[in-house]
Design a protein around this nucleic acid. Structure first.
Lengths: 241, 241
DNA sequence: CCTTCGATGCGAACACTGTACGCAGCTGCG
DNA sequence: CGCAGCTGCGTACAGTGTTCGCATCGAAGG
C-alpha cells in the first residue's frame, strides 16, 4: 500500500470544478444512479447501464467517480439530504419521533439506503450525513441528555434495523409482482409448515396473517411506532429529572 | 488446470477415493462456505473458489445447492444455531439481555450474518432460525407480554441494527490491516475535517477519540449495553404489573 | 452376470460485471 | 497559432453466477 500524505483520502476532499451541467458531471451521474437504484434495486445498477442511461460509455463515468463504491457513497449522501430533523429546542420527544419517522420514510422511498448505510459502518462522511448527525446531536444535547451520542446511537440502531428489514421485505414483495397481501397469502403455507411443531410461532403467524390481510401498511406502521415508543420511553428515563 | 493428462492409464496410477474427506454433500458445502465467509468476507466467496476448496469443480456444487442465494440462506441458518436463548420461565430481563448478547456475539463472530439477515427480510425460514424465534416467543410469552411478537421485533431491530454497523466497522478495520485504535487514529483527521463547522459533532468525535484510544472493545461493549438497557427499560414498562 | 438407470461430477460456454489503459478529439490559455 | 490538459470511449482483462451436455459410476433389476 502506498503511504500517502493524506491518511484517509475522502471523496469529499476532492471538489468538483464546473458547477454548470454539461451532459456528464458528477452531480448528473449521482442523480441518475439514485433513479436507477430506486427503480430496479441495488443489484440492477451497473456502470454500463448507468452510462447508457446518460448517453455515455461505461468507462466515461470513471472520469468523475473513482469507483463504484464511491458512487454508492455519493448516492447515499444524496438521499440523506431528504431526512429531516426538527430544530434543537423543539419539544424533545416529538422531535425525536419525527426524526425517526423521517428516516424510515426516506429508507422506504429508497429501499437500498438502509442496507448500504448499515454495511458502511461509520465510514461515510458525506456533508449531508454529517449535517444530519449534527442536527441530531444538537437536538439531543439541547434536550439535556448527559450522553447524547449514546442516546442517538441507540435510536439510530433501532431505526436502521427496523428499516432495513422492512425495506428488504418490500423489495421481495415488489419483485414478486404481487400485492403485499397476496404475497403474504402465497407465502403463508410455507411459513406455517416451517413453524409446525413451534407452538408460539404458529400462533403468531396465524395472528399476523389475519391482521395483515386487512391492511399491511397500517400493520407495519404500527409495528414501527410500537418499537419507537419503547425506545423513546427508555431514553426518557435517562433524562435528568 | 494441469489436470494430469495421464498418457499411460494404469489401474495403479489411478488414485482411489481417499477417505480423508467426505464426498460432496450439502452439509460439507455449507460448512466450508461458512469458513470462507468468516475468513475473507462476503464478497470473497465465489462458487469457483468454494468448489476449489472442496476439491471439486465449481459447477458440481449446483447438484446440491440450487443457487448462491440459497447457499447463503443455508449458511445463515447454519450459524443461527449458535445463538442461545435462555429457557422460558427464566427471569425475563436477564434472559432477554443474554439472548441479545448472544446474538451480538454470534454476529461479530460471523460478520456477514447481520447484513445478510437484514437484507433477507422475513424470507428465511430455516429450521434453526425458526427454533430461535420460537424460543424467543416462548420466553416473552412466559414473561407476560401482551404482544410478545411486537416486543421481540423491537429488541431484534435494535440488536440487528447495532450488530450490523458494528460488524461492518470491524470488517473495514480488519481489511485495513491495522489495529482498531490505529485505524481510528488514521481516520480521525478526515473525520474532524468533515465535522468542521458542526460543533456538537466535532466535540463528540474528540470525546470518542480519547475514550477509544484506551480500549476500543470496552467502548463498543458499553455502547451496546447502554442501548440494550434502554430497550429493555422501555419493554419492561409494557409488562402488566 | 449383464444391462439399465438415476445420480453425480465437471469442462466448456454464455452473458454479465468492475475497472485499467491508451488513444482520440475538444477547449481554453499563453 | 500551438500546445496542454481535460474529457469521452473502445478494447481488454480477470473475474462472476449459472446452463448444458457429456462422462462416470454404483446400485438395482432381469
Amino acid at each position: 500500500m502506498a503511504a500517502k500524505a493524506n491518511p484517509v483520502p475522502s471523496v469529499w476532499a476532492r471538489e468538483q470544478s464546473a458547477p454548470d451541467q454539461p451532459a456528464l458531471s458528477r452531480a448528473a451521474i449521482v442523480r441518475e444512479a439514485v433513479v436507477m437504484l430506486d427503480a430496479d434495486g441495488i443489484e440492477a445498477l451497473s456502470m454500463r447501464k448507468l452510462g447508457a442511461r446518460l448517453n455515455a460509455g461505461a468507462t466515461s463515468l470513471y472520469r468523475h467517480v473513482a469507483t463504484k463504491d464511491e458512487l454508492m457513497e455519493l448516492a447515499v449522501d444524496e438521499v440523506a439530504a431528504e431526512i429531516t430533523v426538527p430544530p434543537a429546542g423543539s419539544p424533545w420527544r416529538a422531535a425525536a419521533a419525527e426524526a425517526a419517522e423521517s428516516f424510515r420514510a426516506t429508507a422506504l422511498r429508497h429501499p437500498w439506503l438502509s442496507s448500504t448505510l448499515g454495511q458502511a459502518g461509520l465510514a461515510y462522511l458525506g456533508p449531508n450525513l454529517m449535517s444530519y448527525s449534527e442536527r441530531l446531536a444538537a437536538l439531543f444535547t439541547a434536550a439535556g441528555f448527559p450522553e447524547p451520542s449514546r442516546a442517538i446511537d441507540t435510536l439510530l440502531s433501532y431505526v436502521i434495523g427496523m428499516s432495513t428489514t422492512e425495506a428488504a421485505w418490500l423489495t421481495t414483495v415488489a419483485r414478486s409482482g404481487e400485492t403485499e397481501a397476496g404475497f403474504i397469502a402465497r407465502l403463508m403455507p410455507a411459513a406455517q409448515q416451517a413453524a409446525s411443531g413451534h407452538d408460539h410461532l404458529a400462533e403468531a403467524y396465524a395472528d399476523a396473517a389475519t391482521r395483515v390481510a386487512v391492511d399491511p401498511v397500517t400493520v407495519r406502521d404500527a409495528k414501527f411506532a410500537y418499537g419507537l415508543e419503547v425506545v423513546l420511553d427508555g431514553l426518557e428515563m435517562r433524562l435528568p429529572r
